[in-house]
Design a binder for these strands. Structure first.
Length: 861
DNA sequence: CTCTCCCT
């Protein structure tokens, strides 16, 4: 076994030489090179290692265990002797162990316990091109450990093809060694869609084509479970020969179904596996000769603004596409159909975005706080954690009591970090402990940290989102003890493998809590019970919502209508119809997809108003709500108690803040306009006359137009409506009075002179001027009353001629003029002819300027 | 038209 030649053997010598001269190195070699299993064993003989151990990081538990087992076999041993492994809840190492294959989270926890990594001679980062958050963090922490305590410690970054230069830089210009891989050739066929053809149809077309043209099993990459279900249905509908078996493969599929998809096809059968990116690296499907790649993948994107994550469907990177293609060439030459064009291929991003740039950084921020670092820039990163997400993470940690105002980790934060869960869940468990509810909190934390215990049927039959029923089911599952769990339990379809795992995780967390928990500086939680095994656990399931609220206070939600909720963080959330949860007045949404205006709730639980008041009093804020009720035309004043955007209680306010009331009243007037104000005809006339003066002398006369008045309510109206509440109160004000007070007394006198209310005409009548159009003040008078008036009367100190509406004896408009002199001279004679015909009894002199004006038929003799 | 993957 040991002697089989692998491509990596060609560069092992160079690697050994490099690491005897340098502390850091980078090894780039494609899949199939053998680096993962050969390199640790080779380094075991390096003189610099002495009797120290080698740590090798693997991104997945399964890989860590199988790589350790493989290396052990090479030495003719079992895992746990010279070569061992550590993954969560499963450790196989002994005093003899020199190589420890560990998962990434384990390394972080080892570093937190002993930052100097005493006894470790080298740390190897395998599959580093995947750029997981943990690998990035692990490397940053190791680099600082090396710099501060362990100058001689070796760091080796191993990776498939990637840009080595940036890594070399942060590793103090580490040398780069390149090796060959060993893979069978895979032919690439570009197989784009027809126009707007749906992905599923394109996929089915490609599958049919490939079934015809090539032998062997087929692996089809699709972005998600939805596409896989639809493609599966269409494939079956398209009529497949009986020898062809279709198997879906994705993470949420029950363990048994996953194993069935991976297993080699029985002879005489052809297998088509429809898979998400899970088959890109995590799972290996045996016997694949044909790969069909949709070129899409679903990725999580965290939004610092909402504190939630949404899934986006994006084009794969070229690195991913090449990795997918490589799955066809593991055992023999193969072929890969790419469902896109060669032009599109050139535009693919070279590699996927590193997790640290798009993930929720709360776990990272807690690790750094526990490490003693507040600002990530103190460490060396390939990509610095982005500032907005990091800031949001620190705010959350502060809210949860994990870090102090200064940013330093608190005792509570240390306990959270030690639990090895997401900070939200760790906080929930610690608070629950204070209430005697640690056990169910651990159950909840385990469920939320793992895949769903309930089988998600997808499609039309929506999986119930209620976590409390899962919690009850889990209690029942525990009573099964060692026996095999059934597929249906507590009225729900379950994945027995995940259930067992969740129970193990929960028990593990509870044990960790109990051993670490006694004699610590605990979180200052309201302690309801001193005795932990209390009556509280009896009704534990009813506390589900409360516990979730500890973890997700920003996702406490209030029902707007059946199934629709508003969350404390301001976002909308939706529980699909038919579920009991949809009818709850309040809920806590633990898991949801931050999509559109209404995020779908996948997991959550109801919470009662009483529970909110009892357990979340510390985050309930009281404020005055004062607003204009448009229907009732009155100001409403309430005292409201809220958690973020969620309304907890609203009571009519006894002593409303008069300032807020005034603002609400003015808001109401702004919305409702002048019709809410008691304008009289006289007020309107005054307004017109003042507007008239403003037009000619804006520097000295205020703008009292409707629009301007509405825009400046605070200035002119506020002092007169202070303490008022509704429309009938407003009827008490006198607008004309208020307007006239806008100008000083002397100016008011001037107004009467400059913009007279009335003019006396030659007949002796006093005629009221019409100022409704401030551009053109109008004098409307019967023609006969004006005989003898030589010029157009002018106002505003002679600056503005009035517009004269000349009327017939019956007050019908006859002529409009601003030039009376000209009218007498020309138009009068035409008008006279006409009027004389219609009003023969009236007085129509030939010389109107000399004639006597009259308001009767003829002048009185 | 209910969700990608992984880990202390």
């Amino acid at each position: 076994m040991t002697n089989i030649n692998l491509p990596i053997d060609d560069v092992l010598g160079e690697l050994m030489d490099t690491l005897s001269d340098h502390t850091n190195a980078i090894l780039i070699a494609p899949p199939g090179s053998g680096k993962t299993t050969r390199v640790p064993l080779a380094l075991l003989h390096a003189s610099w290692l002495g009797d120290r151990r080698i740590l090798m990081l693997e991104p997945r538990r399964l890989a860590a265990k199988s790589v350790a087992a493989y290396m052990a076999r090479q030495l003719g041993e079992q895992a746990g002797e010279t070569v061992g492994y550590r993954v969560k809840m499963d450790t196989r190492v002994s005093k003899r162990t020199r190589i420890e294959v560990v998962t990434e989270g384990v390394l972080t926890s080892m570093l937190q316990q002993d930052p100097s990594l005493d006894g470790v001679g080298a740390v190897l980062f395998d599959e580093f091109h995947e750029r997981s958050l943990h690998a990035d963090l692990g490397l940053a922490l190791c680099l600082q450990a090396q710099q501060l305590f362990r100058e001689e410690m070796r760091l080796l970054v191993m990776s498939a093809t990637m840009d080595a230069e940036p890594v070399s830089q942060i590793l103090n210009h580490a040398p780069v060694i390149r090796g060959e891989g060993r893979m069978y050739p895979v032919e690439t066929v570009y197989y784009p869609g027809h126009g707007a053809e749906r992905l599923e149809d394109r996929t089915v077309r490609a599958v049919k084509q490939a079934l015809q043209d090539h032998d062997g099993d087929m692996l089809v990459f699709l972005p998600g479970a939805g596409e896989i279900r639809r493609a599966e249905r269409k494939l079956r509908e398209s009529g497949l020969s009986p020898g062809v078996r279709v198997a879906p493969l994705y993470g949420n599929l029950p363990q048994a179904a996953q194993e069935a998809a991976i297993a080699p096809a029985v002879s005489g059968q052809r297998k088509i596996v429809l898979s998400t990116s899970i088959a890109e690296t995590s799972l290996t499907v045996e016997g694949v000769r044909v790969v069909i790649d949709s070129g899409l993948m679903r990725v999580p994107r965290f939004s610092p603004r909402t504190g939630m994550t949404r899934l986006e469907t994006v084009p794969v990177s070229r690195a991913s596409a090449d990795q997918r293609r490589g799955r066809a060439g593991r055992t023999a030459p193969g072929v890969c159909y790419r469902l896109w064009t060669e032009q599109e291929d050139r535009r693919l991003p070279p590699r996927s975005t590193p997790e640290v740039l798009e993930a929720d950084l709360a776990p990272l921020a807690l690790e750094l706080a526990a490490w003693g670092v507040g600002d990530p820039a103190e460490l060396a990163w390939l990509d610095l954690p982005p500032v907005p997400a990091y800031r949001q993470a620190r705010e959350l940690l502060h809210l949860l009591g994990a870090i102090a105002e200064t940013g330093a980790v608190t005792p509570h934060g240390r306990r959270m970090a030690a639990l090895g869960m997401h900070p939200r869940l760790a906080h929930m468990v610690l608070r629950a402990e204070g209430l005697g509810l640690a056990r169910i909190a651990c159950d909840l934390a385990a469920m939320l940290g793992e895949r769903d215990v309930a089988v998600r049927t997808g499609g039309r039959a929506k999986t119930d989102a209620d976590l409390s029923s899962r919690l009850a089911m889990l209690q029942e599952a525990r009573t099964w003890r060692g026996a095999d769990l059934p597929d249906t339990l507590g009225g729900m379809e379950i994945d027995p493998a995940i259930c067992r795992r969740v129970i193990a995780e929960a028990d593990h967390a509870l044990a960790a809590l109990r051993t670490e928990g006694s004699g610590r500086g605990a979180f200052e939680a309201p302690r309801e019970e001193d005795n932990e095994t209390s009556a509280a656990e009896v009704s534990a399931v009813e506390m589900c919502g409360v516990l979730l609220g500890f973890a997700y206070p920003d996702r406490i939600g209030q029902q707007r209508s059946i199934g629709k909720f508003t969350l404390a963080n301001g976002r909308g959330a939706e529980v699909s119809e038919g579920q009991q949860l949809a009818a709850e007045p309040y809920l806590v949404a633990a898991e949801l997809d931050d999509q559109g205006t209404e995020s779908k709730v996948y997991l959550g639980a109801g919470i009662s108003l009483e529970q909110i008041n009892r357990y979340f009093a510390d985050i309930i804020r009281e404020e005055q709500s004062v607003y204009w009720d448009r229907e009732a035309q009155t100001v409403r004043t309430f005292t409201v108690r809220k958690i973020g955007a969620v309304l907890i209680q609203e009571t009519p306010s006894q002593s409303p803040d008069p300032e807020l009331m005034l603002q609400a009243l003015l808001d109401g007037i702004r919305q409702g306009g002048h019709k809410l104000l008691p304008w009289t005809k006289g007020d309107r006339l005054l307004q017109s006359r003042m507007s008239f003066m403003h037009k000619y002398d804006p520097a000295n006369w205020p703008d009292v137009s409707d629009e301007s008045l509405l825009n400046h309510l605070e200035d002119w109206l506020a002092p007169h409506v202070y303490g008022m509440r509704n429309r009938s109160d407003l009827q008490k004000i006198q607008i004309g009075h208020i307007l006239s007070e806008l100008i000083p007394w002397e100016q008011r006198q001037e107004l009467d002179r400059l913009v007279p209310l009335q003019l006396t005409v030659p007949s002796g009548s006093r005629i009221t001027l019409d100022y409704s159009d401030p551009e053109q003040p109008v004098l409307a008078a019967r023609l006969q009353e004006l005989f003898g008036m030589k010029e157009t009367p002018r106002i505003a100190g002679g600056r503005v001629p009035v517009t004269i509406h000349l009327l017939s004896p019956a007050r019908r408009p006859v002529q409009v003029t601003q030039d009376l002199a000209s009218f007498w001279e020309h138009a009068y004679f035409e008008v006279k002819k006409d009027l004389k015909g219609r009003y023969p009894k009236h007085y129509w002199p030939d010389n109107p300027l000399e004639a006597e004006a009259t308001n009767r038929t003829k002048p009185r003799k």
